[in-house]
Computed example of a mutant assay.
Amino acid sequence: MAKKRPVTNLMALGVLSTVVVRDLHPYDMARALRGWGKDQDLPIKWGSLYTVVRNLARHGLLEEAASGREGRRPERTVYRITPAGRAELVDWTRELLSAVEHETPRFRAGLSVMAVLTPDEVTTLLQQRVAEVSAAITAAEEQLAAYVTEVPRLFLIEIEYDIAMLRAESTWMRSLIGELADGTLPGIEQWRQFHETGRPSDDMVELAEKSLEK
């Protein structure tokens, strides 16, 4: 089970990972997050950066390292990570790598209600998705190949993970498309009948009623 953390926004994890390297102004934190590609790994909303930084400081995870003003420019505050912030970064990372949390991808939501479409339309849509996933795999592989000679593999693991997940999704979708195409998916005849007659089969009605009894 995930722990209750003082700052729950995952953008805070990214911020802590930048200041663990050196003291930074929020503007430079944003540059680091973009440069390291963390905007692809974390749900980052750039407009929330200063709020996240202030919250981290309020909870003692960051502290002011320096503050100054040049001419008429706004005051610039540089932050450093505190011992508590370093401990939070380490503990949060351990949790993310070890704890299984239920996450609901949008694709899963679509699969859960795909029966509202005909089997033929679902097949067509899945074929379109397979093509997009294949393109995403190619793009990720090219990105990995471009970085691998300059960046240690340690800092490219998340791209490898993306590729593995996309390949697994592609393999599973191709299998489902095959079952739809050859009619071997269990319940496909009742599914077709539902769209042809506008009425669910007796088996579908019985299943729905049983679920209401739980």
Results as ranks from 00 to 15, higher is better:
E64V: 15
A131M: 10
T184R: 12
N9M: 06
T82N: 06
T51S: 09
K38C: 08
D41W: 04
T138K: 15
S48Q: 15
R5N: 04
T18I: 07
S98G: 04
R106P: 11
A32R: 06
M1E: 14
E64Y: 06
G183I: 08
W36I: 01
I81P: 04
G47P: 08
L156E: 01
T149G: 06
A12V: 06
H25A: 13
E103R: 01
V78R: 13
H195Q: 09
T123I: 07
R174I: 07
V100Q: 12
T171Y: 07
Q40H: 13
L176W: 06
E150H: 13
R108L: 15
E196P: 01
E179S: 08
A181L: 12
L97I: 05
W46P: 03
R58H: 07
P152D: 04
F194Y: 15
S98W: 02
V21W: 13
L176E: 03
V15G: 00
L117I: 02
E169S: 11
G183C: 05
E142N: 13
D91I: 05
M173T: 00
G110A: 12
E101F: 00
M173R: 11
A181C: 10
S201E: 05
E169T: 05
V52F: 00
H59P: 00
L62N: 10
P43A: 02
V78N: 07
L10F: 04
P74I: 06
G68D: 02
S170N: 08
M165I: 03
L42I: 01
D182R: 01
N9S: 07
R108P: 08
A140C: 02
A145P: 11
L49H: 02
G183R: 11
L125R: 14
A146M: 05
A164P: 03
L125N: 05
R106I: 03
G71I: 06
H102R: 10
